[in-house]
Simulated scan of single mutants.
Amino acid sequence: MPTLADTAPTCVVRGLSFDALATALARGRATVFTLNMMHMRLLARDPDFRESYRQASIVTLDSNLINTVFLRRRMTVATGSDLVRHLAARRSLRDRSVLVIGNVTAEEAASVMASRRLDVLRPPFGFIRDPGAVEAVIARVRDLAPDVVFIAVGAPQSEMLALRLRRAGLVAPSILACGAAFEFLLGKQTRSPAVLRRTGLEWAWRLASNPRRLAGRYASDAGFLLSMLGPLTRLARSGALKVGGLQLQFRQEAGLGAKLGRGALGAG
């Protein structure tokens, strides 16, 4: 008889180079999410958030804590902030049209990302709960027809908007859910020192920098981590973790297959 692990939808969390990710985004049709502890907690409790992950074509690991403590540093960690920094430094999208959805101005976004054409859309706070506001965003994306969309409105709004854009038939542009990446690159928020990032302690720096905003989130993340401690301690050996009926498989990979930009269940 098949077990839940055999029948559960699978999401592959890929350890990929920034160059491979940049190529996928520039090629089009890629949906890129970056998995961290908060995302895992949302996957466990929110069916809609799980559905957004099922439609993503590429999921990277955005947690030095998971990589250092539970995967024994076997994976390449690719955070949204570092990926956007790489795209900016390499001018990877200079020949593409770009749309940034988030709380930045057009001038600020243009100072970060070189592109053929750059537009900015600033939806109202909490827009994802307003069907009319979501439809307005979708209509604007359709009118602009960008090659690449950066969604920088935080989880779970970024991932849910990506799902709704795809469901609305917007399949051509690449989408990167990148959280606070532009705020970090613009100096509105400060990244932790590199040594803390490498050792999985970036969360402590961020908590100390903004305890009022992050204390509740990190307390919830810590509670979830403790509830998953058994499976997490077996992660290095098994390479797999079941969260909310979604099977996560962690793989270090050298490159991307030709079909990854199209998006499919099980592609990650």
Rank of each mutant, 00 (worst) to 15 (best):
S158D: 13
A168I: 13
E108W: 06
A133R: 00
R167T: 10
D147P: 06
P156D: 13
N103R: 14
N103H: 09
L121S: 09
V120T: 11
I101D: 02
P156E: 13
S111W: 01
M113L: 15
V171R: 14
A133W: 02
A177Y: 01
A152E: 13
V98C: 09
V141R: 00
G102T: 10
E183Q: 15
P146C: 04
M113Q: 15
G169H: 10
L144M: 10
V153S: 08
R96A: 14
V171Q: 10
L161E: 11
D119T: 09
A114D: 13
E108P: 04
A145Y: 08
A177V: 15
R117S: 14
R164G: 07
Q157L: 05
A133E: 03
V141A: 04
F184K: 11
E107K: 05
C178R: 07
T105G: 11
A172S: 11
S97M: 08
R117W: 03
P123Q: 10
V137S: 08
G102P: 13
R117F: 01
A177G: 13
F184V: 15
L121R: 10
S115Q: 05
E135I: 04
R167Y: 02
N103C: 05
L118E: 11
V148G: 00
F182W: 14
R142G: 06
I101V: 15
L99N: 01
G102S: 10
F125C: 05
L144S: 08
D143T: 11
V104D: 08
V171N: 09
M113E: 08
R122A: 08
A181T: 13
